[in-house]
Design a protein around this nucleic acid. Structure first.
Lengths: 193, 193
DNA sequence: TAGGTATGAGACAGACCTGTCTCATCACTT
DNA sequence: AAGTGATGAGACAGGTCTGTCTCATACCTA
């Protein structure tokens, strides 16, 4: 039996696939390319992931987990809801400028797997919904529940739109204006202390 | 010589390809599928479009033209800048609810062709920039040029984000909140008359 | 009627795709 | 030392991909 419940190989394949999917997309990235880059036998991959679709879902879930961890970290540092939201936007700003930023992998997955019944689509929906809930929880501290839900939806739209603009080379304006709009919207909905 | 400079076949291929790309994506839709659906010989297609990539660009340009025509129509009906912007959002709301809405074809193209040098990427950038300029022109009537540019960018982000949320089944909330946020932002930047 | 043009039909090449199968090897545990 | 499970290496199947080529046919014009 392997010492760790999750094999090292499995994780290595996931991370390699992630890097390739991010650069070239899902359909355009073949299994052969993934196993060559990961330096792993084809059967090793297929033993861990019964199909390419399941590998894609594993990659998305892995990314969602890392995303959550990083935002959890952020939440510990900041105090007011406004500061927490601002930190989330700033984190996105750093992401936009990172060396190989290629847009949102989840949005890309949605583009290639548009069927709501498909496992990949569902994985995307999970992530986006989770992110919205995270912001809703933050906002609920300073506004009614229903209002927090709607404002969270607006902030999510701003961030998704900013990510798309960043992919088209407008990272600076996108983040600055989205961040400003977000804080204005919160200010307008905030319950006075 | 053909009577019309642009062949009927060519346009028919473009429209058929559009319907297929929209549903299944670009890489996932093969040439064979397109010509079968269009009921056209393979050579007919390849005589009009030297490669699949050029067909994709033709499809995107065709869509961009239709999009512009529809928004031009809208502009003639409404009076104030606020009304014009509101009409644009409402138009998107109707689009979100239309029978086979599958998200933004341009955003999907960006997901599959992330290389800024690629002709498809450039076609997407053209469309998004054109749309932003359209909103900027409207806004410039009631605010300084620089402010109009930034507000237009924000509205674009809201619309892109709303389109993504609509694809995930949140069409209602997405449009309502995006529209509200847009009008609030304009109100805050408006030059009093 | 003659000639040029667009198209149809389909074979074909060469590459790539996902997924399966076999057999050898290595490492670790008992 | 023996056995067990994960892995490596690669052939293989069956399909699909883009793009090319040939030849026949329909159509419009001069």
């Amino acid at each position: 039996m392997t010492p760790s419940p999750v094999s090292d190989k499995r994780q290595h394949v996931v991370e390699t696939a992630y890097a390739l999917f991010k650069r070239a997309g899902f359909h355009a990235t073949g299994i052969d390319r993934i196993i060559a880059e990961a330096d792993v036998a084809k059967m090793t991959m297929y033993r861990h992931f019964p199909s390419k679709d399941e590998l894609i879902v594993a990659v998305l879930d892995y990314r969602a987990r890392r995303f959550d961890e990083q935002l959890d970290q952020l939440a510990r540092e900041s105090m007011t809801p406004e500061q927490k939201i601002a930190k989330i936007f700033d984190w996105h700003g750093r992401w936009f400028r990172s060396p190989d930023f290629h847009g949102c992998l989840f949005a890309h997955a949605l583009a290639e797997f548009g069927d709501p019944q498909h496992a990949v689509f569902k994985a995307v929906a999970r992530q986006k919904d989770g992110f919205k809930q995270r912001m809703r929880s933050i906002l609920a501290q300073v506004m009614p529940r229903g209002r927090a839900e709607n404002v969270a939806a607006t902030l999510l739209m701003l961030i998704e739109g900013a990510t798309l603009m960043a992919q088209m080379g407008q990272a600076g304006t996108a983040l600055r204006e989205a961040r400003k709009a977000a804080l204005d919207i919160i200010a307008a909905s905030r319950r006075p202390q």
